[in-house]
Design a protein around this nucleic acid. Structure first.
Lengths: 370, 370
DNA sequence: GACTGCCTCTACATCGATGTAAAGCACTCA
DNA sequence: TGAGTGCTTTACATCGATGTAGAGGCAGTC
């Protein structure tokens, strides 16, 4: 066992990891030549390259990244700030962003903001900010009024529907259209008493909640079904317990309901729990559609219909935008809208899994009206 | 809006962020004095301190962390390497570790290994290794035979049951006792045909699977229930689909079963799905216990009984061990065993949530026999 | 044969912070 | 008065890499 680690030991026995200077001395060349070899500079005589490479492995050389970062003024790190990893949607998004970044040689630092305004501001200006080359932020606490906070001097990509028109690139989805499509789907199934689960208490019409509620109302209007405020069920935060409690209270209050459109999957799963607990059959008595299409929903009983926002596309686009800014792209800020689909499963009576509708993606200036 | 950002603008207009030298010049002091103020060195005349602080804010000074890292030979970053964030157990663990580290001024860099041996080795020796001061690794691909790979010259904490006796601190749980307790609980409910879901195909008896299977067998032996190899249901990886498929196949084969002990919650949720799909009532026909006690299980229908491994304690202990090594603790390597509990819910006929048994934690030398 | 241009390599300055050693100063005590 | 002490500040070297400018050698061109 000791033998297998021999080379490394040589280095560690010196107390101090080998530097380029050590390697240079051993190979009989200059430090810069070692640097050139390490960085793959092409114009090096093969003989020199071999000498250096031998010294490199003999000494078990590992680059001191702090020194390199200091010199080149880049760290190769990017920040991804999300509310909480415990929420499956964000865990899956983080997974996708990490993999996407990885494939371009970037490393992701995850910040959990808890959806708190102060923590989100800290992401944009705290001391840790200096560690990374750019930021992908999914705000929940910040809103339109904080636009000034987004005037930063590093590449920034915003996710979600909380802030529009900020001076930054933005990746989002067509919430109104997607919510309209999901609601229309329920209407087409013949449902007329469709509860909508998830707005804030004093529906402020901002963020995802406002947009999704708009879509819901548009679908009702198109189908000539009157809007009943009694079917709007506030629920925050968008966790299962809130979904379960809020819908439970509605059901216990005796309001007749034949479908539920939940603004995210956690709420939908909570709703499913509340329905089961009361002996309500899904989908026979109440049909249910969620939003986000997290892995979970495929294993609920019944499996849950949901709106898929295009997670991989979002991750890919966000990283691509950041990379392009890091590379010096100074063009106008853009808003990329990812493609969304309504996926039908058992909770709306579908067998297996079917894509009911597709809301195409698009790209517009970041300050275009919503 | 522009006015609110005035100070920052002053700095950015110079093209280049302010350095300590700039601040020193403005305040009329030496660079080192600025450094002393920034770092809270106590012996500074109040008048000097004020001058420096004024210059600091006027220039919007932000420390260049790369330079500091280079000088002090520390980054304040630690690596947490887990298989996948999409797995709720690891997402929740990452959440807990990030928060714990945060409270001690450490920043967490998450690596996803996919459970692959090469990626786990890369965590221990790849180029990104140089970025962080220490590593918390939850191995899945590496095993006993790779002990040499753990002989590293930086603080390392291992998690899980894949590797024992390596030259590193180790945080784990008493898998055998916990699995025994979970199985005993099912036996006490009167179940006799208890399927165990999750071993590898050629039960290699290593890692969590082997230990949990041992616990299962011990419980059967204690209760004088014969071990039936036909009830051992291989399932890998430990995802829902494997749980659903494997248990589904067993059920379809006609093997009588009145309980299932799943080696993790994902498998259990998959199992639940398979049972529902076949019209089997849980818990009346088949009782079900999972392992990990992720958030999910509280919202399944029925809610799922599970073994809680003490996630927060594990996160806390892992970070504490790493910090202590970073602070120079050179004592012998330890193995900390976290407290585990069997939590009963509806899937075993409990109302609400009850703790059925507690397997106490302990601490032993890292090379103690398992 | 002088010139140009390319390849290969080196010396040195530089990125922005912190550690060290010592200097300057005020004050106390003998 | 001179030595001793402790607080405050400074100059300078240093961490380990990369950018720049240019030296030296060799080949090809006219």
């Amino acid at each position: 066992m000791v033998r297998r680690l021999k080379e490394v030991r040589v280095a560690t026995n010196n107390e101090r990891p080998a530097t380029m200077a050590d390697v240079a001395r051993r190979a009989g060349v200059s430090v810069k030549t070692v640097s050139n070899v390490v960085n793959g500079y092409p114009h090096i005589r093969p003989a020199t390259k071999e000498k250096v490479e031998a010294a490199l492995t003999e000494l078990g050389y590992r680059m001191n990244v702090s020194a390199r970062h200091l010199r080149i003024r880049r760290t190769g790190l990017i920040t991804l700030a999300v509310p909480e990893l415990s929420l499956p949607y964000f865990a899956e998004l983080a997974d996708a962003v990490i993999q996407e970044a990885d494939s371009h040689g970037l490393t992701v630092l995850i910040e959990q903001t808890g959806g708190r305004r102060d923590r989100e501001l800290a992401v944009l200006s705290g001391s840790r900010r200096q560690l990374t080359d750019g930021v992908i932020l999914s705000p929940l606490g910040l809103d339109q009024a904080d636009r000034a906070a987004f005037e930063v001097d590093f590449p920034l990509v915003l996710l979600g529907e909380r802030v529009f028109g900020a001076p930054a690139d933005h990746v989002t989805m067509n919430n109104v259209a997607a919510a309209r499509a999901a609601t229309s789907y329920l209407l087409e199934l013949g449902r007329r008493r469709i509860a909508v689960l998830g707005p804030g208490p004093a529906d402020t019409a901002t963020g995802s909640a406002g947009l999704r509620l708009d879509g819901y109302r548009e679908a009702l209007a198109t189908a000539d079904v009157p809007f009943d405020p009694g079917l709007v069920v506030p629920a925050t935060p968008w966790h299962r317990s809130a979904g379960s409690d809020s819908l439970g209270a509605l059901l216990d209050g005796g309001t007749p309901v034949d479908a539920v459109f939940a603004m995210n999957d956690a709420l939908a799963l909570g709703a499913l729990y509340a329905l089961h607990a009361r002996g309500v059959d899904v989908p026979a008595d109440v049909a249910l559609v969620g939003f986000d299409d997290v892995d979970d929903v495929r294993y609920a009983t019944p499996t849950l219909s949901s709106v898929a926002p295009g997670r991989d596309e979002i991750a890919h686009t966000a990283v691509a935008l950041l990379r392009s800014r890091l590379a010096g792209d100074g063009g106008p800020y853009v808003r990329v809208i990812s493609e969304a689909r309504v996926v039908a499963r058992q909770s709306t009576g579908a067998a297996g899994e079917q894509v009911i509708s597709v809301q195409p993606g698009s790209q517009v200036p970041a300050d275009a009206p919503v």
